[in-house]
Design a protein around this nucleic acid. Structure first.
Length: 279
DNA sequence: GTTCTTACA
DNA sequence: TGTAAGTA
């Protein structure tokens, strides 16, 4: 299972603030009538209005009765169009855009809000006996799997050797559900391992994005931000987390759907072939 | 002639 | 999402 390009870096090229002086061609900076905009972005006026109604596109300035659109509208329409091509639904795109805007708005609080460094997950680790954990999985896991789970840092062994720290009870419960439907625990661990690599990639992109963006404030050549600002940067990244979650959810949902279709497609093909050979 | 709104398919 | 009618 592989996830497509990290959505965040993909999105970044369409977000003017995050795309200063970079490689991607900037949209022509001018005014558009709705008709010109539709042609420039390869949509229709009907769609532009529909996106407005759904809140995916900000309303234009009004000159008399005419709407005057800007390059900001151009960028967003391109983003929407590409996202659509990638198989996102309009409502998913809406969620993503909302998260994006919310995240960017948070910059306005920078420098005002002080911040404490936060933990990277809002779930409290839960302590439970190894026997309890095994019971959760209906005793369908062997010790080897537990060893793997330890290596993946899904659980941590306590000093007493009899209890473990479950880092995310939500994950664990979801896993137990799946195991109860007959999916081997081992396979789940493998999937988690693969997922983790990809998710970390997305997280890195996000942090990089924020870092580059925030660091610009301290003027290009000087290397590091003042140490006293680091907590604020950490806080900003923490607050931007919903954006990352949206991106991961969206990509995962897409990958799942694709994988499901492939899987079902293969099965159908085999069934059809089976029928044909029986003729 | 263009833009907008509304409504319908 | 396209199309049509009625406006400004």
């Amino acid at each position: 299972m592989t996830l497509p390009d990290p959505t965040l870096s993909f999105i970044a090229q369409y977000v003017p603030h995050l795309n200063k002086g970079d490689a991607h061609a900037p949209p022509p900076d001018r005014e558009y009538t709705i008709d010109e905009l539709a042609r420039a972005t390869e949509t229709t006026t009907r769609n532009i209005r529909a996106y407005q109604e759904r809140g995916l596109l900000p309303p234009p300035k009004l000159r008399g009765r005419k709407g005057i659109y800007s390059n900001a509208h151009y960028s967003r329409l391109r983003l929407i169009g590409d996202l659509l091509e990638r198989g996102y639904t309009l409502s998913t795109i809406g969620d993503l855009l909302a998260a994006l805007e919310q995240g960017l708005d948070l910059r306005n609080f920078m420098g005002i809000e002080s911040a404490l460094t936060s933990p990277w997950t809002d779930e409290e680790p839960v302590l439970m006996g190894i026997d309890e954990l095994l019971a959760m999985f209906d005793n369908k896991v062997n010790l080897g799997s537990i060893d793997k789970a330890l290596k993946l840092d899904l659980v941590r062994l306590e000093p007493d050797g009899k209890t473990v720290q479950v880092r995310s009870m939500r994950t664990m419960k979801a896993g137990a559900e799946l195991v109860s439907t007959g999916i081997p625990f081992e396979d789940l661990l493998e999937i988690i391992q693969m997922l983790r690599g990809n998710v970390e990639r997305v997280a890195n992109e996000l942090v990089k994005l924020v870092a580059e963006n925030v660091l610009q404030k301290y003027d290009d050549d000087d290397a590091l931000p003042p140490k006293e600002d680091l907590p604020q940067i950490a806080d900003l990244i923490w607050r931007l987390r919903p954006l990352a979650e949206m991106a991961v959810h969206a990509e995962l949902a897409r990958a799942m759907e694709k994988a499901t279709n492939h899987f079902l497609g293969d099965r159908l093909e085999k069934i059809i072939q089976g029928l044909e050979t029986k003729k």
